[in-house]
Simulated scan of single mutants.
Amino acid sequence: MSDRDYGVSLSAADRAFRDEVQAFLASALTSEIRSTRGGEMGRLERMRLWQNMLHQAGLAAISWPTEFGGRSATPVQQLIFNAEMAAARAPEPINRSAINQLGPTIIQWGTDDQRSHYLPRILSADDVWCQGFSEPDAGSDLAALKTKATIDGDHLVVTGQKVWTSKAQYANRIYFLARTDPQAEPRDGISYLLADLATDGIEVRPIRQITGDAEFNEVFFDDARVPLANVLGPLNEGWRVAKSTLGYERVGQSRTHRIERRLGILVAMAQEPNALSDSGLHDQYVADHIVRFAAQVEALRQIAAQATAAGVRGVSPGPEASVAKLLTSELDQAMANFGLDLAGPAGTLERGSPGAAKKGNVAKSYLLMRAATFGAGTSEIQRNVIAERLLGLPRDP
């Protein structure tokens, strides 16, 4: 097995884990999994299959505690896993956000019945989840949400609208926030709900993006009935529960996997003759950019590993999650921009265009990353959190 440099020393257990992951990737990443055939439906089916393979190998959620189907992986083992997945250019599991965000939140806040029901179905991808937090008038200011839920017997009746809901077009379940006490202060009286998207009164409408894809969606609730048993955490205290989810989202172990993979693509592009230089990495301007990106990726790996260790102990990520989110989103944009620079005019061509760089993925990445500094809290919000909670600066008046 290869002895990749992870930037840390490895124990015997770490080396055994590395060998296990490398062996799994060598055998599991077949031509079928790597295929690009079948369009969007084919891609989704391969993502579902890939997650099932990870699950069967005990690798779908290595940071989860063992009693919930994880491996209680150490931060070093999480670094190893991310690095190997990135080096192999492995696809993401279809339930990426549920594994990294919802699962840890259920572990922390759920009842025994909720844990025993939902967690195995997240791992197996029997349930595919999407997140319904943002609303048309409550994006960065999430406490301004207007979706309401009123108690009717043993159900909540939900009315309202969510927007920018990723994956809703193919998910079968949604975790979302609704106001259950309209008389309370904005951050109070909110509850965290789990719902079946097939529930009467829930409608999903895709939103076409600048990339041409419909990755985001609107979700409408029209007197949709959600069982009270589907409230995650205490009723009217969903803000506290949501902060846990947002912390896991902002750190996002899978984000480091994606960014490491993007860095590998940039390194390969930089090593070849490109629009910036015929000298590859011998060109100082190109080499300086790659080295800066690599240093930032390593910093992000270390932050994510620390947050994962906290999560294994049942502690929600703190303000360091905002550092990770800020670095991730701005690094995502910077690398997408540099990829366009390396590709030159061919980088502006879309998928299907003759001569398009990386089959049009350079252009798509550039366009998609315009939104990187908005999702999971804008960069402005993250800077406020860092200023107030890490640096001790006064709140904005």
Rank of each mutant, 00 (worst) to 15 (best):
P120Y: 05
D181M: 01
T165A: 11
V157P: 00
P104D: 06
Y175K: 04
A178P: 13
P186H: 04
S166D: 10
F133G: 01
C130K: 10
P136A: 07
Q131D: 11
G139R: 15
Q183E: 10
V157N: 02
V157H: 03
T105N: 01
D181V: 06
E135S: 08
G153D: 11
V128S: 05
L123P: 14
Q108Y: 01
A149N: 09
P104W: 05
N100F: 02
R115F: 02
L142V: 15
Q183P: 01
Q108C: 04
D137C: 00
V158Y: 07
G160P: 07
P182N: 03
T111F: 15
L123C: 08
A125H: 03
D137G: 01
I99E: 05
P120V: 00
D137Y: 08
Q131P: 03
P182I: 13
Y170P: 02
D113A: 15
S116N: 09
G132M: 06
T111I: 14
D137F: 11
F133H: 10
V158S: 08
E185K: 14
L142H: 11
V128M: 01
R121M: 01
T147R: 05
D137T: 11
A143D: 13
V128H: 03
A125Y: 06
V128I: 15
W109L: 07
E135Y: 14
L102G: 06
A144G: 12
G139P: 03
Y118A: 00
S124L: 03
R121Y: 08
F176A: 04
D154P: 12
Y175I: 06
Y118G: 00
D188R: 06
K167T: 14
H117M: 02
Y170F: 15
A125L: 04
D141N: 12
P120H: 02
S166K: 11
I106N: 02
R173H: 12
G132A: 08
G103D: 07
L177H: 06
V158H: 00
K167L: 04
L145P: 13
Y170N: 00
T165E: 14
K148Q: 15
L145T: 14
R173A: 03
L156Q: 05
K146N: 00
D113Q: 13
I151P: 01
T150H: 11
V163W: 12
Q131N: 10
S124M: 03
Q101H: 13
D141G: 04
R173I: 09
A171E: 11
P104K: 00
R187D: 09
T159D: 14
Y118Q: 03
S116G: 04
T180G: 03
